[in-house]
Structures are given as structure tokens and as C-alpha cells.
Design a protein around this nucleic acid. Structure first.
Lengths: 97, 97
DNA sequence: TAATTTGGTTTATAAAATAAACTAATTTAT
DNA sequence: ATAAATTAGTTTATTTTATAAACCAAATTA
């Protein structure tokens, strides 16, 4: 009846992060922060969780002299995102008579 | 960019409850329990929260000699459910180029 | 060189989800 | 008749989660 919802994706901020990365494939931390409106602390925690799950990878480089954290969605992350959307549909009576 | 998600509906079990009631308008507690696979305790708590928000109303009657708890979605609940779906779409890049 | 800004991380707190334990009445079995 | 099991839930406790506040380090600006 109802498909289980991946708890890693069923979170407003993590879903927003993944949504950005599904479109753009990669993004810098401050950009994600701006687009989601999240605090840096919260974003840092949620990025870590997505990375720990292998849904994104985090690359720390420099942009000139400043640190620059880039987040990139993985194949696993893309699959999980799509599966989450499919699961969601079981709750939204899409195409029910 | 991302629309906020009503925290009352952004919960797997409460969303399932609302999904059932959107289709059927009303349902008995044990039926919801069966369809969602929830434990009675969890269901009782989440039904209370939805009722406290005015998204559903709970009527306690009897069916023969046994108690019978009926949950019914309200107009407010229907509106909230639809608004939630609209908000969700901002995360799912539906119809993005 | 002192203050501020940038780019974060770590830690603490508040809120939420969930299950376990419990209550009460009813039905079934002995 | 009464003991055991089932139904129908509620209450309470525990675990997870989300979130923000506090913090750190380097770079920039005043």
C-alpha cells in the first residue's frame, strides 16, 4: 500500500540539498546555504549525513586562498532520490480513479 | 525557491493517515492501523496531533458493544494536504526544463 | 593591528517519532 | 463459571532527529 520513505531523504533540508544537486550535479556550500536558507551549522550536519550514506561526495578544495567545499551527487544518490519520489507517489494518490 | 513543508504532514505515518482519509474521507482506527502497518500507540499519538491541528476529527462511538474510533478529514485537512503536495513539487523538479 | 567577514565544525538543546508498557472491556475456551 | 486471549485503544518512556548556538581559523577590510 504505502511504500516506506527513505528517512535520509524525508527531511526538508536534506531533500532540498538533493534537489539542488539533482539539477546542478554539484554546488558549493555557500550556494546551497543561500538557496536553502539553512544555517551553516544545520547544513554542515545534513551534508555530513548525506555524505556518510554515499548519496553525495564532498570535496574540499580552495578557491584562491579561501576554503571551498563542493558537494556532488553520486549515482547512488540519484537512484535514491528517484526511488524516494516513486515511494512518495504511493501517498499522493496520483492517478487514482 | 523551496517552499516550506508543513511539518505536520511531513511525517511518514501522518502523511499515510491523511492519504487514506483524502480518498475515503473517513476510516476506523483499526483499518488505518492495518493499512499503514503502524503500531496502535504510534497511530494514537499521530491521530491526536492531526486532530489537534484540526486536520481530522475523531469521533468515538460504538460498534455493537465495542468501542469504535472514526477519523474523518476536515476541509482544513484537505486544503493542507493539497498545499503540502504543491510545496513538495518545489523539491521534485517537476516540469523543470 | 584591530575589527569584521567568510567558511565552515562541534556541541548543546528542543522537538519528534516510535515502541513498550499499560488499561479496560469483550469474546472465546475449558 | 472463570481463566485466557483478543480487541481497542492510551499513556509513558526512549531513541532519533532537527536545529541553532557557540565556537574556530584564516582572510579581508578599516
Amino acid at each position: 500500500m504505502f511504500q516506506p520513505l527513505d528517512p535520509l531523504l524525508h527531511s526538508e533540508l536534506r531533500l532540498a540539498i538533493m534537489s539542488l544537486l539533482i539539477s546542478d550535479l554539484e554546488a558549493e556550500f555557500p550556494y546551497i546555504k543561500e538557496q536553502t536558507g539553512a544555517t551553516a551549522g544545520n547544513l554542515s550536519v545534513q551534508v555530513d549525513k548525506l555524505a556518510a550514506a554515499g548519496y553525495i561526495e564532498v570535496v574540499k578544495t580552495f578557491k584562491g586562498k579561501r576554503p571551498c567545499t563542493i558537494c556532488r551527487i553520486t549515482a547512488k544518490g540519484q537512484q535514491a532520490f528517484e526511488a524516494y519520489i516513486e515511494a512518495l507517489k504511493s501517498y499522493l494518490q496520483i492517478g487514482k480513479p
